[in-house]
Amino acid sequence: MDSIDRAILAELQRDGRITNQDLADRVGLSPSPCLRRVRQLEADGAIIGYRAEVSGKALGLPITVFVELTLEHHTTESTEVVEEHINAIEHVTECYLMAGDGDYLLKIAVGSLEEYEVLVRSKIRSIPAVSSIHTSFAYATIKERSPLPVQAGKSWRRTGS
């Protein structure tokens, strides 16, 4: 991946609906080579998809909940079953397998505290092998859906003091 590929990725993260012509202009290519590079980045798995970002509030889901699940045991079979259950819960928008105290971290969107309670009672508690559930509610979003840094070889450095 060279600097032009990285520039393409940076631009597409800012605006996934940009036209190929505008993208080519921004990264200093003509349209045909730009489109070839985009298609190659897709084929290589650097670009994994395109989507619209939708407001949870607009859908009546203003509450973001983070749930840490800890498992009783960690067999291949039990983790497969746990992950199947998690994937079947539509309110779970993200799920991460964690190192540390908890095993899974879920990001959940709900409309109310009552809705979350029903979700816990009907779906989350019924997940086999879960020994504990720890819930945290987000009351403000400080930074959300930031683009990934695409510049290779550049590390974060504190400037000033």
Rank of each mutant, 00 (worst) to 15 (best):
E42V: 12
T70R: 11
V130W: 02
W156D: 12
R17Y: 01
R17V: 07
L12Q: 14
D103K: 07
C34F: 01
A88R: 12
I142N: 05
T135M: 06
D101P: 13
L113H: 13
V38P: 07
A46M: 01
R37P: 03
E90I: 09
L41W: 02
R14Q: 05
D15F: 00
A10E: 09
L35F: 12
S126V: 00
L71Y: 00
V65C: 06
L29D: 11
V150E: 14
P128I: 04
E77H: 12
G28L: 11
P33V: 08
S122G: 01
Y104A: 04
D5C: 09
E72N: 11
E77Q: 11
R14P: 01
E114F: 10
I127C: 00
A52Y: 12
I108E: 03
L148S: 07
T93P: 03
L71I: 02
H74C: 03
G100P: 04
I142A: 11
I86G: 07
L29H: 05
V67M: 12
V82I: 06
F137D: 00
Y96D: 01
P128N: 02
Q40F: 00
V110I: 11
K154F: 09
W156I: 13
V150I: 11
L9D: 07
Y104V: 08
T141Q: 10
H134M: 14
T159Y: 07
G153V: 03
L59V: 05
D15E: 06
L119M: 08
I4E: 06
V54T: 09
R26L: 08
V92D: 03
T64P: 02
P128K: 10
S112E: 07
V38Q: 04
M98D: 01
F66W: 13
R6W: 05
V118E: 13
S122W: 06
G56F: 10
E94S: 15
H91E: 15
R6I: 02
I63N: 12
D103L: 12
P149V: 11
S112W: 12
V81G: 01
Y50K: 10
G153W: 01
I4H: 05
G102A: 08
G160M: 06
R39L: 11
G102E: 09
W156E: 13
R36D: 10
G160Q: 10
L61F: 09
N87E: 07
S146P: 03
L71N: 03
A43L: 08
V81C: 08
R145V: 07
L23Y: 06
V82T: 08
H91C: 09
A109Q: 15
V65T: 06
A99I: 05
L119N: 04
S112V: 08
E94K: 15
R157L: 13
N20T: 05
L106E: 09
A10Q: 11
G153C: 00
A88Y: 02
V110D: 03
A24D: 04
E83P: 07
G160Y: 04
I86T: 02
L97S: 13
S32A: 13
K143I: 03
R26W: 00
V81T: 14
G45M: 02
L9G: 08
K123N: 10
E115S: 13
G56D: 05
Q13M: 15
V54W: 01
Q21L: 09
P128G: 06
L61N: 03
I48D: 00
D44E: 15
E77Y: 11
C95D: 05
A7N: 10
A88H: 03
H134I: 13
Y104E: 07
G49T: 01
A88S: 15
A109M: 12
V150F: 04
